[in-house]
Simulated scan of single mutants.
Amino acid sequence: MTDQLDDVPAGVDISRPSAARVYDYFLGGAHNFEVDRQLAEQIMAMTPHLAETMRAGRAFLRRAVRMLLADGVDQFLDIGSGIPTVGNVHEVTHAVDPTATVVYVDIDPVAVAHSRTILADVATAAVIQADLREPDTICDRAVATGLIDFGRPVAVLLAGVAHFIPDADDPQEILRRLRAHLAPGSYLVISHATYEDQPAEVLAAQRLSARTDTEITLRSRADVAAMFGDFTVVEPGIVHLPLWRPDSPTDVDDHPERFGAFGGVARRDAALS
Rank of each mutant, 00 (worst) to 15 (best):
R221A: 12
H31V: 00
A59W: 03
S209E: 01
P153S: 12
S191R: 06
E257K: 10
G263A: 06
D97K: 11
A266Q: 01
I174T: 14
Q4P: 08
P246M: 06
A59N: 09
V73H: 12
P236K: 00
I128A: 03
L243I: 00
T232A: 15
L5Q: 11
H240C: 09
L218V: 03
F150E: 07
R267D: 02
Q129G: 13
M227K: 01
V35F: 10
I238W: 03
G28W: 05
A100L: 07
V65I: 06
Q42K: 14
L157S: 05
A261V: 08
H90L: 06
G151V: 05
S18R: 03
L208Y: 12
A183G: 06
D247Q: 07
A111C: 11
A162M: 07
F228T: 03
A126C: 10
P9F: 01
S248N: 15
A159S: 15
V239R: 06
G28A: 02
G80A: 09
G151Q: 10
S81H: 00
D78M: 08
F164A: 09
P153F: 10
R141L: 14
D74N: 13
I83D: 08
A20W: 10
S115H: 04
R258Q: 15
L147C: 08
P48Y: 14
S248Q: 13
P135G: 04
R211V: 01
D131K: 01
Y23T: 11
R211T: 04
I216W: 14
G28M: 01
V103W: 07
L77G: 11
H31W: 03
R211F: 04
D149E: 00
F26R: 06
T145M: 05
L243Q: 09
R58K: 04
T194A: 10
A126R: 13
I79F: 14
G185S: 11
S18K: 01
R179K: 08
I165F: 02
R258Y: 05
R176M: 01
V35H: 12
A155W: 14
I79W: 15
A20T: 09
E52Q: 13
F231Y: 11
D140F: 02
H31A: 02
Y195K: 08
E34G: 15
S273L: 07
A271S: 10
P135Y: 00
A183V: 02
I107V: 12
P171E: 00
V89T: 13
W244I: 05
V89F: 08
V154T: 15
